[in-house]
Simulated assay, not measured.
Amino acid sequence: MNSGLQQIAIANCLEWLEQGYLDNRYSREAAEHLFERAVARMSQTGQFDSYSSWVEAYCHNREELDEFMQRNGSDDPLALEAKDKYDQISRRLGTDIEEYRETSSTSRGTRVRYREN
């Protein structure tokens, strides 16, 4: 599948999730919880059992998702708009957990570390 189409689909899912609390179908906290758990379960099995906690799984998977959404997979204006939409909404929905995620870049690549407060 074209990565541009995947980026559009991911951004649309986040938009629908956020719209749910904006339309008062559920609380903002519920939307944040759904987003965080969905990211934590981004794996072939839908589980986060290779990590010690869902927060650690979220931290690692969020970094990979952010990287994927920044790829230049398409010059399609809809894909470019989707990337911006993802950046904005993921920042709003992932704010509570971000304090646990610490990244560092080296010549060997980017490392994600889970940090307890």
Rank of each mutant, 00 (worst) to 15 (best):
A31L: 02
Q88E: 15
L5E: 13
C59W: 00
Y58D: 04
W54E: 10
D49E: 14
D49M: 11
S53A: 12
T95A: 07
E81T: 14
L34C: 09
N24Q: 11
S50Q: 12
C59A: 06
D96K: 10
V112M: 00
D76Q: 04
S52R: 10
E15S: 12
S50K: 09
L5K: 09
W54G: 04
L34Y: 08
S43A: 05
R25V: 00
C59F: 02
Q7H: 03
D96N: 15
L22F: 08
Q47C: 07
S105M: 06
E18Y: 00
S90C: 03
G73K: 04
Y100I: 03
G109D: 05
Y51K: 01
E29L: 10
Y26K: 01
E56I: 00
Y26M: 01
D87R: 08
R113N: 12
T110H: 05
N117C: 04
S105Y: 07
R91P: 00
Y86E: 09
N24H: 12
E15F: 10
R115S: 12
S105D: 09
A38C: 13
A11V: 07
Y58H: 11
R101L: 10
E102L: 04
R115V: 15
R111H: 03
R108D: 13
T45A: 06
A82I: 13
R108K: 11
N12Y: 13
E32C: 15
S52N: 11
Q88M: 13
E98I: 11
D84H: 13
L65Y: 07
Y100N: 15
N61C: 08
D76G: 02
Q7F: 02
T45G: 06
L80E: 13
D23M: 09
W16N: 11
L14K: 01
L80V: 14
Y86P: 09
Q7K: 05
A40I: 05
N2Y: 10
N2S: 12
V55E: 15
Y100K: 09
D96E: 14
Y58N: 07
I97F: 08
S74H: 07
N24M: 12
S107M: 13
S50C: 11
M42K: 08
A40N: 05
Y51I: 00
Q7W: 04
Q19C: 05
G46W: 02
F35L: 06
N72F: 07
Y21H: 07
C13D: 15
Q44W: 09
L22A: 10
I89K: 01
L14R: 00
G4M: 00
L5I: 06
Q6P: 11
E116C: 04
K83Y: 01
F48G: 12
E98A: 11
T110E: 06
R92M: 01
N61P: 07
N12P: 03
D75L: 06
E98G: 11
S52C: 05
D87S: 04
Y51N: 02
G94T: 14
N61S: 10
A9Y: 11
D75G: 07
K83D: 03
A40S: 14
A9G: 13
D75C: 02
Q44I: 14
T106H: 06
A30I: 15
L5R: 06
R62D: 04
A11I: 10
E63M: 08
R28Q: 13
G20L: 01
E63W: 06
N2K: 10
E15T: 14
V55A: 09
D66R: 06
A11H: 03
E29V: 14
L80C: 11
Y100G: 02
R111K: 03
E67I: 12
G20N: 01
